[in-house]
Simulated scan of single mutants.
Amino acid sequence: MPQANPAALEFLLTRRSRPARTLGLPIPGEDDLRTILTAAARTPDHGKLEPWRFIVLDRVALLAMAEKVAQRGAALNLDPDKQAKARDEYANAHLAVAVVAAPRDSDKIPRSEQVYSAGATCLALLNAALAAGWGANWLSGWPSRDPEITAWLGLAAHEDIAGFIHLGTESAAPPDRPRPDIDAITTRFVP
Results as ranks from 00 to 15, higher is better:
140 S>N: 06
33 L>M: 03
179 R>V: 07
58 D>T: 09
100 V>D: 03
32 D>R: 01
78 L>P: 07
93 A>D: 05
175 P>F: 08
190 V>T: 10
14 T>F: 08
87 R>W: 05
164 F>N: 05
105 D>F: 09
74 A>W: 05
26 P>F: 00
120 A>V: 04
115 V>G: 03
9 L>Q: 13
32 D>N: 03
46 H>C: 12
125 L>P: 14
157 A>F: 02
60 V>Q: 15
8 A>K: 07
93 A>T: 09
52 W>A: 14
100 V>F: 04
44 P>H: 10
54 F>Y: 15
74 A>V: 05
7 A>D: 14
89 E>N: 09
170 E>P: 06
161 I>T: 04
76 L>E: 11
78 L>S: 06
93 A>Y: 00
188 R>E: 04
81 D>K: 09
182 I>C: 07
128 A>S: 15
77 N>T: 11
132 A>M: 12
59 R>K: 13
8 A>D: 11
190 V>M: 05
72 R>W: 10
161 I>V: 12
10 E>I: 05
109 I>D: 09
61 A>F: 06
177 R>T: 13
2 P>M: 13
46 H>E: 09
126 L>K: 10
42 R>V: 04
54 F>L: 11
22 T>G: 05
60 V>I: 13
50 E>S: 13
40 A>S: 08
124 A>H: 15
166 H>Y: 15
115 V>K: 02
130 L>W: 02
40 A>L: 14
118 A>W: 00
67 E>M: 09
139 L>Q: 06
42 R>L: 08
94 H>E: 00
125 L>W: 01
13 L>H: 08
97 V>P: 00
65 M>C: 15
20 A>G: 03
67 E>H: 11
175 P>V: 11
136 A>V: 00
183 D>K: 11
47 G>E: 07
180 P>R: 04
39 A>P: 07
119 G>I: 06
104 R>L: 04
169 T>Y: 09
174 P>Q: 09
159 E>G: 05
190 V>I: 10
128 A>L: 11
108 K>A: 07
130 L>S: 04
75 A>K: 09
138 W>F: 06
162 A>Q: 11
37 L>Y: 02
83 Q>T: 12
9 L>K: 12
24 G>V: 05
86 A>N: 10
67 E>V: 13
105 D>R: 13
129 A>F: 07
29 G>F: 11
42 R>G: 14
31 D>P: 04
80 P>V: 15
111 R>V: 00
47 G>F: 08
21 R>S: 14
59 R>D: 10
53 R>L: 09
94 H>L: 06
158 H>W: 03
175 P>T: 11
119 G>R: 08
70 A>Q: 01
99 V>A: 06
125 L>V: 14
154 G>A: 08
135 G>R: 10
59 R>V: 11
31 D>R: 14
58 D>H: 13
147 P>W: 03
123 L>H: 13
61 A>T: 07
37 L>E: 00
71 Q>K: 10
70 A>N: 02
32 D>P: 03
177 R>P: 04
17 S>C: 12
188 R>G: 00
51 P>Q: 12
40 A>I: 13
71 Q>F: 08
107 D>M: 04
20 A>W: 08
148 E>A: 00
18 R>V: 15
89 E>G: 01
151 A>G: 02
159 E>M: 15
13 L>K: 08
